[in-house]
Design a binder for these strands. Structure first.
Length: 564
RNA sequence: CGGGGUGUAGCUCAGCCUGGUAGAGCGCCCGCUUUGGGUGCGGGAGGACCGCCGGUUCGAAUCCGGCCGCCCCGACCA
């Protein structure tokens, strides 16, 4: 590829609204360009990287016997209505109507469509297990796209789906995908950690996310430095110490004028936040008001609570809700409250200060179990330093980018869609289903976010847009140009992918662009060395420089570029 | 959807407070120069109806109102 004709120019300055290092470099290096908020065009350099990422995924998926196919982008509403997702995806799905008014969704994902095909193609247990996958555009009208390609509204996802006859088979298929994912991410240069994740409100029991730890990530990941435990914050748990039984005296009111927050109470009563009970009134999807009781130093984990109350959206209670359960804003407590009460497992059997459900008043010596009842549940966020649930060491919290996820749905979709096969025992059984996703563009930018230096991108060799960047200078010099073009032709003849900088630019411009674009090997064919029959090779990552004889350079570079 | 910010040339920005008809640097084109780190000199083109609509005013990039786009935080995100 001649750089003089390359579509897409590098930028000396990143646009002001680019925030993360990867976002800036992605734009500066002409990887992709925005077309609208969260909607991007791949430029040729970025497209090459995306295709390499895809190919790695393809090879690993094929390696576990999954079959590539392709489903459409435009999908009829009827299948989505079978599972109810036509309605539940309402806020985030792009929809269109055809000329006669029929409803379609721009594919948000493809579970329903694959299950539909499965129920008509797969009739017998003899055809199972089977796994399929495709690379296809997804449309998601995210309320807030962010950070370039990290969160976009339209993107290509590799999504895979598996059908098994029973749970044991599903388990085996699931872990085969887990292995393929781990290998794929490693090959593309991503240090992806498998973490336990929430299964969301679409059923299923087990799910893992592959997270790349980086400060630019939007997910919070709980990690144990002592063992293998790792989980998304939505799912993470801790080992809670058993408290001693309470010896607190009877409850008594305490006047707390104007002290309606944990901070106020800590200040005015002079006690630790952990000695307070925080009672939050939450309105569940069905309108039910739930009072969640947490120690004053713990935060509510919405994902856990959502799961407990049956999914759907959670909101803070409104005025009418407060009135209904006889709660007073700022002074809500669990004693005498007319609501379903969920007591977090962090709450001990001891005396606390809690709201009295009376203005400007709290109650001392409130003991859970003795003074109020409630169902026990884990609905709190893990904090740094909490004990690991499996080994007890202090946990850490890091940020991560979710580059892939795998979900075990079990019979959920098959049941919703009446998808069954004839089992060995002659009965009809639902397919045991799972799905597996990787966002290609997110993976590309995450590679950049974790592989760069002050000068630009440092591509892992397996996904670099080109293996070798040949820089000729001055390109006006016939001898130099001839030497460079001979080398380029020789390299290409050996299957090496070459970006050839044939532009009449100064050395500084060319080197700066080469660093920015970040191919693993840079070869300089210059006036200085061509007379001596030498070319200079520089490794992008290490900066290591070696001089090669021009005559043998192509053969040696081919080995450096594709060691086998 | 809530909060905050922002919108002037391809990019980075100044001008706005205090109204008078729009600028700089980089980039782009040509020539020479230079050719191992965004080179130098000279010439040149073009380029923003100052996001849009309305209002105030003799006059609006500038003041006022509304809307839109984009960015950030939050909510949301099988």
């Amino acid at each position: 590829m001649r750089q003089s004709t390359l579509f897409g120019r590098t930028l000396r300055d990143a646009p002001a609204d680019a925030q993360t290092p990867g976002h800036k470099l992605m734009l500066r290096a002409a990887i992709a360009r925005p077309l609208a908020a969260g909607i991007y065009t791949w430029l040729p350099i970025g497209f090459r990287v995306a295709k390499k990422v895809e190919q790695i995924i393809r090879e690993e998926m094929n390696g576990i016997g999954a079959q590539e196919m392709e489903l459409p982008v435009i999908t009829p509403a009827e299948y989505w209505k079978e599972t109810g997702r036509w309605d539940t995806l309402e806020p985030v799905a792009f929809r269109i109507k055809d000329h006669s008014g029929h409803d379609f969704m721009v594919s948000y994902t493809h579970e329903e469509l694959v299950m539909h095909h499965g129920r008509s193609e797969l009739l017998s247990y003899r055809q199972l297990p089977v796994a399929v996958y495709h690379f296809q555009s997804k449309g998601r009208d995210e309320a807030r796209p962010r950070a370039g390609l990290l969160r976009v509204r339209e993107f290509v996802m590799k999504d895979g789906y598996s059908f098994d006859a029973d749970l044991a088979g599903l388990d085996k298929t699931y872990w085969a995908h887990h292995g393929a994912y781990a290998r794929a991410f490693a090959r593309m240069g991503l240090d992806a950690l498998s973490v336990e994740s929430d299964t969301g409100n679409m059923g299923g029991d087990v799910a893992h996310e592959f997270q790349v730890l980086t400060d630019v990530g939007e997910d919070r990941i709980v990690l144990c430095p002592g063992c293998r435990y790792s989980a998304n914050m939505e799912k993470a748990v801790r080992r809670a110490a058993a408290g001693a039984a309470s010896t607190a005296p009877a409850m008594e009111p305490v006047s707390t004028p104007g002290a309606s927050s944990i901070e106020d109470l800590v200040r005015t009563l002079g006690i630790e936040a952990g000695g307070l009970l925080k009672t939050m009134l939450i309105r569940a999807a069905g309108g039910e008001v739930v009072a969640v009781v947490l120690p004053g130093d713990r935060e509510l984990n919405e994902a856990k609570l959502r799961k407990l109350v049956g999914g759907g959206e959670l909101a803070f209670a409104n005025e009418a809700d407060f009135a209904k359960v006889r709660g007073i804003a700022g002074f809500v407590g669990p004693v005498g409250l007319g609501a379903r009460i969920v007591v977090d497992v962090s709450v001990a059997e001891r005396g606390y200060v809690a709201g009295a459900n009376r203005k400007d008043t709290h109650t001392r010596n409130v003991v859970p179990g003795r003074d109020f009842a409630g169902e026990r549940a884990d609905v709190h966020d893990v904090k740094p330093g909490d004990e690991c649930p499996s080994c007890g060491k202090p946990l850490e919290i890091r940020r991560g980018v979710e580059v892939g996820n795998i979900f075990k749905f079990g019979p959920y979709y098959a049941d919703k869609m009446g998808a069954t096969f004839l089992a060995e025992d002659g009965t009809r059984k639902p397919f045991m289903f799972a799905s597996y996703g990787i966002g290609v563009s997110r993976a590309v930018q995450t590679i950049i976010e974790t592989n760069f230096d002050d000068a630009g991108i440092v591509w892992p060799a397996a996904v670099a847009p080109f293996d070798v960047h040949v820089v000729a200078m001055p390109v006006k010099d016939a001898e130099v140009r001839t030497a460079a073009e001979t080398l380029v032709a020789d390299l290409e003849g050996r299957g090496v992918e070459v970006l050839y900088d044939d532009r009449d630019e100064s050395a500084g411009v060319k080197f700066a662009d080469a660093d920015l674009i970040g191919c693993p090997l840079r070869v300089t064919v210059s006036k200085r060395n061509v007379g001596a029959g030498k070319v200079e090779v520089r490794r992008r990552k290490s900066g290591e420089v070696l001089m090669l004889d021009a005559a043998a350079a192509a053969a040696e570079l081919a080995l450096l570029a594709k060691p086998s």
